[in-house]
Amino acid sequence: MDFGSFLAAPEIKIKIVTYRDIFQDKAMIENRFGEEYRDRSAILKLDPADFKQLNIKKGDTVILKNSFGKIVVKAEESGYEIPHRGIAYMPNSPWSNMLVSDETGGTGVPKFKDISATVTSAKGEKVTELRF
């Protein structure tokens, strides 16, 4: 277990796997700058044990950070039966893309579904706005 997880405000290393969500797609078509699209995109689904370790409640915000970016999203338990500690899920969106590496090894294909980041409680900080 990494040192960060013993801190008073625990920091956990995770791998984020992105996926498609029909409700989020619909919300994007209707208004990609709207609240519904943000609510359905800027969300991280964690293993219950990781969730507990972060000392947060459902819907609390967390900070996701790596060398490519930092975003604030809401967190919840994934609801998957099989434990997946260290792996979290997030719908593919401009939010997840803020953390995707530009390292492609010259292939032209970024690792959209394989994002390494740290997660900590955002202590009430608001979800990142969609803008440049």
Partner: peptide, 16 residues
């Protein structure tokens, strides 16, 4: 297409 949303920001920022 909306590459500023769909590409990694670390890449798409160069469009600016």
């Amino acid at each position: 297409s909306d590459p500023l949303s769909s590409l990694p920001r670390s890449v798409s920022k160069n469009l600016l």
